[in-house]
């Protein structure tokens, strides 16, 4: 019962936020928090629940962003029409990439995902049709409401809130389904899960594809809000790291972890930048880096793990010297 009370408090706060803090910049920050929460929650499915630390998730983010901007820039359609295309692209790519890489253990998987993302970034940078290094722009002056180019952040805020709710609902449903059960088993010990008959490879692949689809939606929304995508902002490895850090900081493998991470890191980044960035001494990142280090050092399981008593076992990926 209490659980539901707190849940309704969170929901009520989320709905009321842009009315309580109503300056355009605060509303935009709220929308950005939700946007990154969507991306980090999507990552959480494969990185948190399945324990497959993908550092190249930006490649799916980029699928969505480029599909949305491409729909407008190349076909004159509303960027909204790009979303399904982005999902198809991302899921297809996840299948192609996932089959060979998901069998890699631990860090090798992370490295392979970095390599895939960097390859895509470099290919797009050199592809004239996709705008190469110049990037693709969306509609600055909206033709109609479906161009999703608003002055106020309010419509974005509620759109993102709705999509975040759907993402979290899917995640919640997944963890309580057979798939979630398999994922937990695989995360604890893949070998044991296999020997007990859990279809490990297939389950991981499904989680990867689901995560890719949702990440691509986040990418499409991001591009629509900023009205622009280029290889660095749509496919740069730093975006992957940012998403991953939000999930890890809040608590990977926990339903609300990514939301908490985003709600802390996005304002921290924007506000420290607003206060310190103009001085040009790099202090923004000194502060930002120091806080991340402190959290990692004293709360390695993420902030929300303070509250869960679940013990964590470290996955052995074979430390040792191999001459």
């Amino acid at each position: 019962m209490r659980r539901w009370i707190w849940l309704s408090v969170v929901v009520a706060f989320a709905i009321a936020y842009p009315l309580l803090l109503s300056s355009p910049f605060q509303q935009r920050l709220g929308a950005l928090v939700l946007l990154y929460a969507i991306a980090a929650s999507a990552w959480n499915i494969v990185g948190g629940y399945a324990g497959q630390v993908s550092v190249g998730h930006v490649v799916f983010f980029g699928c969505g962003a480029y599909a949305a901007m491409g729909a407008y820039a190349k076909f004159g359609l509303s960027p909204l029409f790009g979303i399904p295309g982005g999902i198809v692209l991302a899921v297809g790519l996840a299948a192609i990439v996932g089959v060979p890489t998901l069998r890699l253990s631990g860090h090798y998987f992370s490295m392979a995902t970095i390599a895939v993302a960097e390859t895509m970034r470099l290919i797009v940078t050199n592809t004239e049709w996709l705008g190469a290094a110049v990037g693709l722009s969306g509609p600055t002056v909206p033709r109609n409401i479906f161009d999703l180019s608003f002055l106020s952040a309010l419509p974005y805020y509620y759109l993102f809130l709705a999509i975040l709710s759907i993402t979290l609902a899917i995640t919640w449903w997944m963890t309580n389904s057979r798939m979630g059960f398999y994922l937990r088993a695989i995360k604890d010990s893949e070998r044991a899960a296999r020997s007990l008959g859990a279809p490990a490879s297939r389950t991981k692949l499904y989680a990867y594809m689901l995560s890719a689809a949702l990440t691509s939606v986040a990418g499409a929304l991001y591009a629509m809000m900023f009205g622009f995508v280029d290889p660095e902002s749509g496919l740069g490895i730093l975006i992957s790291v940012k998403i991953l850090i939000m999930a890890a900081l809040g608590g990977a493998g926990l339903l609300f972890g990514p939301l908490v991470g985003a709600a802390i890191l996005v304002p921290l980044e924007e506000i420290s930048n607003s206060w310190l960035g103009g001085k040009g001494a790099g202090l923004t990142f000194v502060v930002y880096g120091a806080i991340i280090v402190l959290i990692a050092r004293f709360q390695p399981g993420g902030l929300l793990s303070l509250l869960t008593r679940r013990s964590r076992s470290k996955v052995d990926t074979g430390a040792g010297y191999a001459p």
Partner: peptide, 26 residues
């Protein structure tokens, strides 16, 4: 962070990277 999950290591060392890079910058 060694005993924590792999994510904590990424988190910690990435934060350290920013800290070192921008201290030098400063």
């Amino acid at each position: 962070i060694m005993k924590g999950p792999m994510l904590a290591q990424i988190l910690g060392t990435f934060g350290l990277a920013l800290l070192l890079r921008y201290s030098v910058f400063w």
